[in-house]
């Protein structure tokens, strides 16, 4: 697709959730440090005049874009961060944080379609957006109330879109840690059942934490609701790899609910 992705050398964890208080500076250091790396990559010739940072994970995307937005809007805030990171070059706000789906939209989903080797004809796929890809307004990549970017993505792979009224209902996020896992399992129940009622074969998402919560927490969901039926939950790039004929890159070994039996049955996987 004429895109070459270059990984940031020595990236650090952005923190996964955005610091939401007015007075906290510390938790913006991690995301801004990554943005400094992007500028260094330009200086060191790893990329040529390319300030777009492409992010796959919805949460990282949200954190990076929010911190970037904050320092661009508040030069004093940026100055504080720059003076704290006295071992780094200064950040200037020039990096553009983008989600991979935005890049695909910019290039045109018709181009994605051109690259599809095995159209997923007849496969019914429900998009799950979650929170951080869409909200808040001004940060998200699509209309927070009526998003369509993932549906366009699904269509470009030749699959059939199944709508889900809960496609942007929070899965419970980090409540999956500690004593409140049931909150997550219950939301997985709601989201997955809604997709099934509308005929979906599987769900895709662009957030690794949503993927964990909707996929791995099905074990707990099944415990609470014995009537619950499992459904595969794929990371959106897994579906893309499948449609583009890159079976060895699909990484289905990592899925809790194995999608392979379903995909074999429908003829999208050999064997």
């Amino acid at each position: 697709m004429d895109i070459e992705l270059v990984e940031i050398p020595k990236w650090n964890c952005c923190g996964a959730v955005s610091s939401l208080t007015a007075d906290d500076v510390m938790h913006h250091v991690a995301p801004i440090r990554n943005l400094i790396r992007v500028i260094e990559m330009n200086e060191e010739g790893l990329v040529n005049d390319e300030k777009r940072l492409i992010v796959f994970c919805s949460m990282c995307f949200n954190v990076l874009r929010r911190s970037n937005k904050r320092v661009k809007e508040d030069p004093k805030f940026l100055e504080t961060i720059n003076s704290f990171m006295d071992e780094e070059r200064d950040y200037d706000g020039s990096v553009k944080v983008m989600h991979f789906l935005e890049i695909l939209r910019d290039i045109g989903f018709y181009k994605v379609k051109e690259r599809v080797k095995k159209p997923l004809k007849g496969l019914k796929v429900s998009a799950y957006y979650g929170c951080t890809l869409l909200r808040p307004r001004g940060v998200g990549i699509d209309d927070p109330e009526a998003p369509s970017i993932m549906e366009k993505f699904i269509e470009s792979l030749g699959a059939e879109v199944v709508d889900n009224p809960y496609k942007s209902l929070c899965c419970g996020s980090y409540h999956t840690v500690g004593g409140n896992k049931e909150l997550v399992a219950e939301r997985a129940y709601k989201i997955i059942n809604a997709a099934r009622e509308r005929g979906a074969d599987l769900i895709i998402t662009s957030c690794p934490l949503c993927a964990f919560n909707l996929d791995n927490r099905q074990e707990l969901t099944k415990k609470i609701h014995p009537d619950f039926e499992h459904m595969p939950v794929l990371y959106f790039t897994q579906l893309m790899a499948l449609a583009m004929g890159m079976e060895s890159e699909t990484g289905f070994d990592g899925n809790y609910i194995d999608p392979r039996p379903l995909l074999r049955e429908r003829g999208f996987l050999e064997g």
Partner: peptide, 18 residues
């Protein structure tokens, strides 16, 4: 970890602790 890099700056062995 908040990636503040204070550990790296503190290390007398000059390791990249962070």
């Amino acid at each position: 970890c908040v990636s503040c890099n204070t550990c790296t700056k503190a290390c007398p062995q000059e390791l990249d602790v962070m």
